[in-house]
Design a protein around this nucleic acid. Structure first.
Lengths: 214, 214
DNA sequence: CAGGAAGCGGAGGGCGGTCATCCACTTTCG
DNA sequence: CGAAAGTGGATGACCGCCCTCCGCTTCCTG
């Protein structure tokens, strides 16, 4: 094991199985799954998991570095659509879809305080793109004027709760409420009664928000 | 202690303190608070709590019987408003407000499988009233035609998630998203993409939905 | 093909957290 | 005043989880 390169063939295979199992379980059930469950799903012993990854967090980190890149790329692509109304729609749709499919990703995005630092970086990449999108949407009238950028994470949160709730019974149900929300943020009823969160309020709320664990 | 009537004066006082403490803590932090925390808040020992209430569940049951009555009465009153649009609005507003103020009540309403039976009764009282309200609202055009009765609990769920999220930072924020949702269910955009849950789907989802515990 | 290094499994130690009990002590009240 | 009721909180029992440890297996190199 000179530079950490030369793993025996079985070790490589097992590492792959562990990652696959973890990916699956985190996606289906959330970040709270135990090391023993991951090991069992992978068809290896816990010891094996711990030889490859010093602890839970290391495993999670390895796994989600890639996932986050993908998430951001996806959002940026959606936001780039020339028509701001549609851009906003697909942005929300894609964003929620990824979180709907991957429970672990969602838990990472809202609420994990440790991961917060790592996320801040990627979030900052994303922000200017979305700010620009919102400006365009406001100008074009595709969005009521009092909707702010900090509303988007909250809308995501609400929809994700629907995903969580109806998961086993009607996994696509969130699209129904996405449609309602979209109509809601396009309509021009009375002005909204409460101000949107300021950026730092949003961050404060996120950093102490705990995900569910069954 | 012949018929359970004659408690010593200090016992009565302590029972009151325990109930008050439990009410407070359940409301602020949810049903997951421990017996020790309740005892400490009440200024008594755990033993005292266990003498009055054989276990956690008994304490919860005692406490929330009254709360549920209140909840149902409140909803019925709101639904009775002659103008269906306003009835719907205040129904949601009051309902969420009660849940926003009392975390334990919310956890009881969505997700507690054991309490489910007890709740079924009260829910059944409520349903015809709300069904009637929806019919009136549909006829009057105050509500898009494809909104169904099972949408209401889901809207409640979404808003409660906002409450949970912004609780410490902007406790009234949920009203902002209530306004968005109300505009969304009044608007007549494209028809909604997914069907509403059927009654039994809703119940299935509720009975396996687990509340958060920090 | 042989021997040593690398890898493996999974029992179990340690930990932290909760419910509920138990009993020596205190308070009430007839 | 004294028996009965009530009290507190240390304690036992339990649980689920993280991670370690070590005797056994598998790989791979010479």
């Amino acid at each position: 094991m000179a530079t950490g390169e030369s793993l025996r063939r079985d070790a490589v295979r097992n590492r792959g199985r562990i990652l696959a199992a973890a990916r699956l379980l985190f996606a289906e059930r959330g970040l709270h799954v135990t090391m023993d469950e991951i090991a069992r799903e992978a068809g290896v012993g816990v010891g094996t998991v711990y030889r490859r990854f010093p602890n839970r967090d290391a495993l999670i980190a390895t796994l989600f570095e890639e996932r986050l890149q993908e998430y951001v790329a996806n959002a940026e692509e959606a936001a780039a659509h020339p028509d701001p109304g549609e851009a906003l729609e697909t942005l929300l749709e894609r964003t929620i879809e990824m979180q709907a499919v991957d429970r672990g990703l969602h838990e990472l995005l809202v609420g994990d305080a440790e991961a917060h630092e790592r996320l801040a970086r990627t979030r900052n990449d994303l922000r200017p793109v979305i700010e620009d999108l919102l400006r365009r949407a406001h100008r074009s009238g595709a969005l009521r004027p009092d909707v702010a950028i900090t509303d988007l994470p909250v809308l995501g949160l609400m929809l994700r709760e629907v995903v969580d709730f109806s998961h086993d019974v009607a996994p696509q149900l969130w699209r129904r409420y996405l449609a309602i929300l979209l109509d809601g943020i396009r309509s021009t009823g009375r002005p909204l009664p409460q101000p949107a969160l300021a950026q730092d309020q949003l961050e404060a709320a996120m950093s102490c928000h705990k995900p569910r664990r069954p």
